[in-house]
Amino acid sequence: MRVFVDPDLCEGHSKCEKSAPAVFEVRDDDLSYVLLDPVPEEHREGVERAVRVCPRGAIAMTEDNE
């Protein structure tokens, strides 16, 4: 899967980092960055949780075959 953070929406709440620490990193500019591309399947649960709990709805994921 591939994961994207919309920098216009992200406000650095860091819920994604807590949900999937291997995938997301919130840096000094208060934006979350995706560390892996593509994101290995083992992180699916964490990423799905990140998408769900992101306060701003800033995270999107696509499947490899899309």
């Binding site: 406000e11 860091s14 208060d30």
Partner: peptide, 11 residues
């Protein structure tokens, strides 16, 4: 976005 930098967790 005009003001949100003043409201981020870091700020």
């Amino acid at each position: 976005r005009l003001v949100n930098k003043g409201f981020t967790p870091r700020a």
